[in-house]
Simulated assay, not measured.
Amino acid sequence: MHSENNQLDKISEYVQQKFANDYTGHDYYHLQRVVKNAIKIATDEGADLFITTAAAWLHDITDHKLANNPEKEKNELIQFLKPLGLQYSQIEAIITIIDTTSYSKGVIPSTIEGKIVQDADRLDAIGAIGIARAFAYGSSKQRSIHDPTKSSGSTIHHFYEKLLLLQDSMHTNTGRMIAAERHQYIENFLHQFYKEWEGE
């Protein structure tokens, strides 16, 4: 019989292998940070720590930006989880969270665990780490740093299209508190960026 700690270790190893060659800002260390954020929030919110942690590790597995065949990845994940001894209801809860975490889907999760994982993931998209990840992802997609002649398409545009909107999308009190500081960091960065862009 697998203990929950053993199950989580196996899940961690699974994603470490899956994302070993990621250079878009969605690597194993991103997952690790999301897990840490999720555990912190789940502890404050009194949520199911196992479901929250497992889903946090696995939240990018079926992301359309990263997976060539999201449905295939989902089926492989289910087959991986079954022998670990998870209950059907646990697998179902984890898959549901994975299906609703992505910002681009615009879905509000129905469970507190889902809301926590979504908050934890979005927290890693803002602040100093969020800025670094934005430029890493932009580079991987051959986006320019900034192009003031265009209304979209650069990494700086992405700040306005997504990153600056994340603070107001937080579901939990802990998420909102952390997001406020990280949001301000982005505001400060942009202020300095434009000064330097203009040669000031």
Rank of each mutant, 00 (worst) to 15 (best):
R176H: 13
G130M: 04
K18W: 02
P109Q: 04
N75H: 09
H183L: 09
R122W: 11
H157Q: 05
N21F: 14
Q87R: 14
L49Y: 00
P109C: 06
K74H: 10
S169I: 13
N75M: 07
V107I: 15
I91S: 05
K141R: 08
N69E: 13
E198Q: 15
K115D: 01
Q118I: 00
E45Q: 01
Q184L: 14
Q167V: 12
A20D: 09
T96V: 04
I178M: 12
S140W: 05
H26R: 13
T96N: 13
T24M: 09
K82T: 15
L165F: 05
D22H: 08
A128P: 12
G153H: 03
G175W: 04
Y137S: 10
A136Q: 15
Q32W: 14
A67Y: 04
I94E: 02
F19G: 05
H171C: 07
I91G: 02
H183R: 12
Q142T: 14
T24H: 08
L163Q: 15
A38V: 02
T100Y: 03
L163N: 15
Q87P: 08
V107L: 08
I156K: 10
G25H: 05
I39Y: 07
F50Q: 03
K141W: 06
D124M: 13
L84G: 02
E92K: 15
V34C: 00
D99T: 05
Q17F: 11
I156P: 09
E73I: 12
A47Q: 00
G46F: 04
T62V: 12
P70F: 07
I11H: 05
E45S: 02
G25D: 08
G25F: 00
E92I: 09
I108N: 04
S139C: 12
Q87G: 06
G199R: 02
A56V: 12
G85F: 01
Q16A: 10
I156R: 06
K40I: 11
I131Y: 05
A179G: 08
G85K: 03
D27R: 04
V15Q: 02
P109W: 01
I108Q: 08
Y29R: 12
D147L: 03
E113I: 04
F189Y: 15
N75F: 11
M1D: 08
S12P: 02
G175E: 01
I39H: 04
D9H: 03
F80Y: 09
M170Y: 00
T96D: 14
F135T: 09
K65N: 14
K65S: 12
E161A: 12
K162W: 07
I97D: 01
K72G: 10
Y88K: 11
E196F: 13
Y194F: 15
D44F: 06
T24Q: 14
T149I: 11
I61Q: 04
A55R: 00
H191R: 14
A179S: 10
L31R: 14
G106Q: 09
R176S: 06
V34F: 03
A20Q: 15
H183D: 15
N37M: 10
I116Y: 01
E92A: 10
N6P: 02
L77G: 05
M1R: 12
L165I: 11
I94F: 00
D121Y: 00
A55Y: 01
A125M: 14
L166M: 07
I145L: 11
